[in-house]
Write a protein that binds this DNA or RNA. Structure first.
Length: 499
RNA sequence: GGGCGGGUAACAAAGUGGCUAUGUGGCGGACUGCAGAUCCGCAUACGAGGGUUCAAAUCCCUCUCCGCCCUCCA
């Protein structure tokens, strides 16, 4: 089983061959921290988290570097407006963004270099580029000369001549070619600045990624990624800088994530449709959001909408119901059994589980095809339900095996993560609601836990049902449903789950 | 103008030469006091036109429509 990845550089799916055996070195362009994390950030970083997890699943040792752009025009402008230091301002938003992404259940990268702390490396890299004849100084600025780098455009497929034809760039006085870009910018008043061989100033945006990736990963490294929007000019420029400075190949594989739209529109400040992660988490469980992401391929542009999340939530509930059935069945104590003791239903189910795992892995091996992988999870769900439907007795060994497989595959898609941050305020609130319902039905639940209280309510409901008191029975069910508990009557009696 | 990627059933979204994708929704049936869950069955597809092939949603050509990038952007 070999892993194939679509490489934006070659525009082909390629078999993954690590630079260093059993290791994966990946660099992903991170956030410019001047406002809260939005759903687009979440989508991109979810995709790379999933990619990293899958590499780990395949047994690779992954080093994942993601930069933090904490010095930039927008940050400086916003900080000046508030009258505070730019770095203080960006620190604040970096903390907020990471807190939001943490809550979303996206694992952090291994290293988060900050632009402001990597300036000496950027200066060194810029000097090398000048020494190698690919850049020039112009009145305190330093520009990269795109004409000198013959491979310029190899990532985006753009030719310099074609770019010229469609150019809508003002002929910049300091540049030799309008597509030359700044490696170093002369400082202006009220800006953070650093000393350099070209006087006080600050680095250009593109140079930070070239400097940080080569500093922490070495050249060449395996994977460089980011949003689709960064392909040109940002990534094109990164390649030019790194290769001009070192003469080595930069990144082997380029991965670009399709940009998310909101209700069919591009997400932008001008439309005013930016969806913040923080706001989203008030209404939706993080797992629902992640599952929504997993249902679209990373290279496709998913369309975010309430409807799409509702859809994801319903599908996810199906998966959880099966998981809970398996947990219940697996926890029954039954000894080991011999293969010959299995009935056809059980044998068939075991075989299907093994097949699902194989299909799941080959879906993921094919350029991280999570939508297909999700469909296999649903095949698993359907098969499990059929198994339970036909089973005359339940075998805990089989359920354990099925459960382990489901948890293993699910974890690759970030499913079934137990929330580390227990929300005690919400839990207390829910217990009070349950207690209030119990009071209405004259059940004393003083000092009882939520689970015990619900069980008592369901016991009361069963009593009502035997008396054919449908009013009380349906009342209890509806009241619990309203506060978020799903009640189902089964042959084994009533069961409940949190929706 | 140049570059990149698309158009699949009601919606979302995989597949990419022959085999039911999948989810949500719809219809019918089973189960149930009812509901829900679950199972069984059904319907609705591959933008248009040509071509290659025994066979095309899938390969080739032409056309058409849409999105994104070329300015900061995940």
């Amino acid at each position: 089983m070999t892993l194939k990845i679509y490489n934006s550089l070659t525009k082909e799916k390629e078999e993954f061959k690590p630079v260093e055996k059993n290791k994966v070195k990946m660099y992903v362009c991170g956030m410019t921290v001047y406002s809260d994390a939005h759903i687009g950030h979440a989508r991109t970083y979810f995709a790379f988290d999933m990619i990293r997890r899958y590499f780990e699943y395949k047994g690779f040792e992954v080093t994942y570097v993601q930069n933090i752009t904490d010095v930039d025009d927008k940050i400086i402008a916003a900080a000046n407006k508030e009258g505070i230091d730019a770095l203080e301002y960006s620190k604040r938003y970096a903390d907020r963004c990471f807190a939001d992404l943490d809550k979303l259940g996206i694992r952090r990268a291994d290293i988060y270099p900050k632009a402001s702390e990597t300036v000496p490396d950027m200066i060194k890299l810029t000097e090398k580029i000048i020494d190698n004849g690919f850049a020039y100084e112009s009145d305190g600025d330093v520009y990269f000369s795109v004409e000198k780098f013959k491979d310029y455009g190899k990532l985006s497929g753009q030719k310099l001549d074609d770019l010229m034809a469609g150019a809508r760039i003002d002929p910049a006085d300091k540049k030799k070619n309008p597509f030359d870009f700044a490696l170093w910018k002369k400082s202006k008043p009220d800006e953070p600045s650093w000393d350099s061989p070209w006087g006080a100033g600050r680095p250009g945006w593109h140079i930070e990624c070239s400097a940080m990736s080569s500093k922490f990963l070495g050249l060449p490294f395996d994977i460089h990624g980011g949003g689709m929007d960064l392909r040109f000019p940002h990534h094109e420029n990164e390649i030019a800088q790194a290769e001009a400075a070192t003469g080595k190949d930069f990144a082997k594989i380029w991965i670009h994530i399709g940009l998310l739209t909101v209700d069919g529109d591009k997400m932008s400040k001008s439309i005013g449709n930016i969806v913040n992660v923080k706001d989203l988490l008030e209404k939706w469980d993080s797992e629902v959001i992640r599952f929504f992401f997993a249902q679209a391929h990373y290279r496709s542009p998913p369309d975010f909408s309430e409807k799409a999340l509702k859809n994801a939530k319903k599908g996810l509930a199906r998966i959880h119901r099966v998981k809970e059935k398996l947990v219940a069945c697996a926890s029954r104590k039954i000894g080991e059994i011999n293969d010959k003791d299995l009935v056809p239903n059980e044998k068939n189910y075991l075989k299907e589980i093994v097949d699902f795992k194989t299909s799941f892995v080959s879906a993921m091996d094919d350029d991280f095809n999570t939508p297909q992988a999700v469909s296999i999870i649903f095949d698993f769900v359907n098969s499990s339900n059929r198994f339970f439907e036909k089973a005359t007795k339940l075998n805990s060994y089989i359920c354990r095996f099925a459960l382990d497989t489901l948890l293993e595959l699910g974890s690759i898609l970030t499913l079934f993560q137990t929330s580390k941050i227990k929300n005690s305020i919400l839990d207390d609130d829910l217990l009070k609601k349950v207690q209030r319902i119990a009071d209405n039905y004259e059940i004393n639940v003083k000092g009882k836990t939520m689970e015990e209280s619900i069980d008592l309510l369901l016991k009361k409901r069963e009593e009502a049902r035997t008396k054919k008191d449908w009013g009380t029975a349906d009342g209890i069910r509806n009241d619990l449903d309203k506060i978020g508990f799903e009640i189902q009557d089964t042959v084994d009696g009533p069961v409940w789950r949190k929706k």
